[in-house]
Write a protein that binds this DNA or RNA. Structure first.
Length: 435
DNA sequence: TAAGGATGTGAAGGCGCACT
DNA sequence: AGTGCGCCTTCACATCCTTA
């Protein structure tokens, strides 16, 4: 069976606060630079996006699509030879359900996978009667999660429904400000139709697997990318035939699903508790001793993912069933090494050089030999990647919407020529800022 | 002096909720 | 009852600062 990487939760340019570049061509381009074989389309509920997809994609395998040949040819020159590998698209979308249940307001996001345009259009006709699906690629519906699931199941018996980023405080199944304490309370009689949960950036398998109530669910990871360059920052490893039903089966029974690619959970923006505006960051035990109150403003802090997991956990040691790889985006590693921002021209140029020589980013981060990395990217890069692969990272946790920072080198540790005034200033500012 | 880089802010839809 | 605010996301853009 082929081994491949899939990132199924992303957005199009029809969603709010997303890049204008999010069209099928740029998604295909970046999927190849990252080394992703199957990428979700996102936003299939949006009429403008779905008609663009119908125009630009053709079915490649059962339930998977690829760019039409003329479009594929048009992006080919922009893709390094080392990365050429025609990606597939799966029709996916995210829906935001906001509703009241058992006297509490619930705001829960869900990811939906469908096998073809017919079923997408059928679902869209149903949803259009419930709410406005034209104004946003991620529509907000006043619909109970259970009832959305029912509508989806009625649309196609091949549909797959995944609660999205289940721990984020504001919009998720287990969210401290929005969700439930158990899955049955959310989906009731239809709970058996849920087979997989998306864990989000701020949690990883060792955290999730402290909850016995999650034992019967597969954990999946996706990027929720709002720009092409963020594709695959979290993603899934499949070892199945390349088609829709095989992938859905793997996510249903776990066979052929070999693991996930993860952020270090501390990098996620809701890992710890606190208030971003008050610059207060608290560990769960601190939050509890302060009775959930922010010492600066006196209001309730935003309770993060680590705290929620801790509250609902019923084990001391995680029961881990699948492999997972904790990675740092390559531009962030280069940013630390070279002492400048991850989106600067310098980092972009080095990034392009690296994938040109070594292959797709995820290959460089996970599999490429350290010797080759050293030859192309220098000794600091190979040292950095070696440390990342062995979990030897310095973690500064994110909280209340602020991303954490994962570093690989102590201050002063980097040798010449990179250790210079700019880089130490930069690190100092970043550290100071975050508290 | 120009280019590059850092930083701050506005943008979007829909909903609940606090407040008047 | 009605109004306004805050929340989701993070990009895109404008502006200011730094460096060669």
């Amino acid at each position: 069976m082929p081994k491949f990487i899939a990132d199924l939760h992303i957005h199009s340019r029809f969603s709010r606060a997303t890049s204008k570049n999010l069209d099928p061509e740029h998604l295909a381009l970046w999927a190849q630079k990252k080394g992703i074989k199957v990428v979700g389309t996102g936003d299939f509920t949006h009429p403008g996006w779905i008609s663009e997809l119908q125009e630009k994609l053709i079915e490649a395998e059962q339930g998977l699509f690829r760019l039409k040949p003329d479009l594929a040819a048009s992006i080919k020159p922009a893709i390094p030879d080392s990365c050429q590998d025609s990606p597939r698209f799966m029709l996916t979308s995210e829906i935001s359900c906001i509703y009241k249940k058992n006297d509490k307001t619930r705001k829960v996001h869900h990811l939906i996978l469908l096998p073809g345009f017919d079923s997408v259009l059928k679902l869209n006709r149903r949803l259009e009667q419930i709410g406005n699906i034209r104004s946003d690629g991620r529509p907000i519906l006043g619909l109970d999660s259970r009832n959305l699931l029912e509508v989806v199941l009625e649309t196609s018996d091949r549909a797959f429904f995944i609660p999205a980023h289940v721990w984020t405080p504001w919009f998720s199944l287990f969210g401290s400000k929005s969700g439930f304490d158990d899955i049955e309370e959310c989906f009731e009689d239809l709970t058996p139709h849920i087979h997989a949960l998306e864990t989000g950036l701020s949690s990883d398998p060792p955290m999730n697997r402290l909850l016995s109530q999650l034992d019967r669910y597969l954990l999946v990871s996706n990027s929720d990318a709002h720009s092409p360059a963020k594709l695959g920052r979290e993603s899934n490893l499949f070892e199945t035939a390349l088609d829709y039903d095989a992938m859905v089966k793997a996510m249903t029974d776990g066979q052929g699903f070999s693991g996930t690619i993860e952020f270090f959970p501390e990098e996620g923006k809701y890992h710890l508790d606190g208030h971003r505006k008050c610059r207060v960051r608290l560990h769960p035990e601190e939050t509890k001793s302060r009775k959930g109150i922010c010492p600066v403003c006196g209001k309730a802090v935003t309770v993060g993912v680590f705290h929620r997991v801790d509250d609902l956990a019923d084990r001391d040691h995680p029961k881990i069933s699948k492999a997972f790889f904790s990675l740092i985006p390559l531009t962030e590693i280069l940013s630390e090494i070279h002492g400048c921002g991850p989106a600067t021209k310098k980092v972009t140029r080095i990034y392009e050089d690296l994938i040109n020589t070594l292959g797709p980013e995820l290959h460089i981060l996970m599999d490429a030999s350290l010797e080759k990395i050293k030859q192309t990217g220098g000794v600091l890069l190979s040292k950095a990647i070696d440390r990342m692969r062995n979990n030897k990272v310095i973690r500064q946790e994110g909280y209340d919407g602020e991303f954490g920072v994962i570093r690989l080198f102590d201050d002063g540790e980097k040798d010449e020529p990179y250790q210079n005034r700019i880089s130490s200033d930069y690190q100092g500012e970043r550290q100071g800022d975050a508290l």
